[in-house]
Amino acid sequence: MADPALRGGRTGWWRPYRAVLASRVRAQTSYRGSFALDLASSVLIGLVELAEIWVLYRSVDALGGLDLAAVLLVFGIADTAFSTADLFVGHVDTLPRYLRAGTLDVFYLRPQPLLAQLVTSEISVRRVTRIGVGLTALVVGLAVNDIAWSPLVVAFLVVVLVASTLTFAGLFVAAAGVQFFLVDASEMTNAVVYGGRYAATQPASVWGKPLVALFGFAVPIAFTAYLPVVALLGLPGAEWLPSWLGWLAPLAAVWTWAVALLAWRTGVRHYQGGGG
């Protein structure tokens, strides 16, 4: 019977999560050929996206106030942050499949919070190479730009990377919460998540009003890479967003997570109410 004395021992709150994740990593890397293919294709996709920027900047010197060096830094921060979030949290967009297969009901039978279980139910190891592409762009971007290095700048970069990763992770979770209502239309949330990823690598100063409303404020994508770079390099920035806003990247993460947890909570309520 449920004797508390027999539990514990090798405990630690992370043990259940670690057990699942460790076995997921083993399972993914066990098919070596397939795994190598995934690693390679992640790099290729990253390179093609970089190539797009390069092709565009062959014809122009600057876009929206950013030259190629600056936009490389934007791409580096955005891609590193998004790919890291994708590695740890990206699979939550499989929620519709979990709902159809009843896997979520099984999560209810385990003594951990549902969202924590969903996030740790999988890890996409194949994205590490994509993070590598982002980091390379970031390092090159830092080297080719004229940056007055100081401990503050280093701290700023670390904070921005963490905050942006959290913003994208929150975006994934918010999308999952919405999918409780839109089981058949996960492409709709993908529009915001992957549109957000694409938007994050752009100079936000070129956006029209609808995009400013969507990716400037509602989903604070401009805060993940563009605004911090503008602040870091001391660029003029967009007229609708003063450059000091780049310091508010952590606030964007907090805002995204507030929305994400609300969306998740509402979604779970809807599911438990039988609307799923």
Partner: peptide, 17 residues
């Protein structure tokens, strides 16, 4: 067997248990 190892961790069973 691996499913049981994970579930034992999920339910925080002691190694002996």
């Amino acid at each position: 067997a691996e499913s049981y190892r994970i579930l034992a961790a999920v339910h925080s069973l002691s190694p002996q248990r």
